[in-house]
């Protein structure tokens, strides 16, 4: 089955991203297709490569990036939510005159239409949030 995932919270403060990650991994192991993982609200904070969690803690951003690489996942960060919270790719950083970008490998920035499309194309949409 084709599944869409929506992650509405950032890493660490809430369990939402952890649960979404475990769910996504389990779905892939069962042979389902993940159409897209969309990060919205504070969920966009999962997509910064600048986090440095303690060594004995999980690195959630890295876990998502690795899962994306292994399974060719489409990890999409909402552009409007990302701009509010300082998540930028190179193009966005240039466009807004910022001196750095911070998007993590495997993530891309795009519009909210990608979330609506997930709802249309996927057989099921599962929401993780607070």
């Amino acid at each position: 089955m084709k599944l869409g995932i929506l992650v509405n919270e950032g890493p660490y403060t809430h369990q939402a991203s952890d649960t979404a990650y475990q769910f996504t991994k389990a779905a892939l192991e069962k042979g389902h297709e993940i159409f897209r993982v969309f990060f919205y609200h504070d969920g966009v904070n999962n997509g910064t490569r600048l986090t440095v969690p303690p060594q004995d803690d999980r690195n959630l951003q890295q876990a998502w990036s690795e899962l994306a690489e292994k399974h060719n996942l489409d990890l999409v960060v909402c552009i409007a939510a990302a701009q509010r919270r300082g998540i930028l790719d190179e193009g966005e950083a240039k466009r807004h005159g910022k001196d750095a970008s911070n998007i993590a490998p495997g993530f891309r920035i795009s519009g909210l239409g990608q979330l609506v499309e997930s709802g249309i194309v996927a057989d099921r949409l599962v929401v993780f949030g607070d």
Binding site: M1, L3, Q22, F23, K25, A26, A27, E29, K30, H32, D123, R124, L125, V126, V127, F128, G129
Partner: peptide
């Protein structure tokens, strides 16, 4: 477990969080 969670999602028409 998480696999069971996936099964529940696929065997129901929709998920309401």
């Amino acid at each position: 477990d998480y696999g069971g969670f996936v099964d529940l999602v696929t065997t129901h028409q929709r998920t309401q969080a």
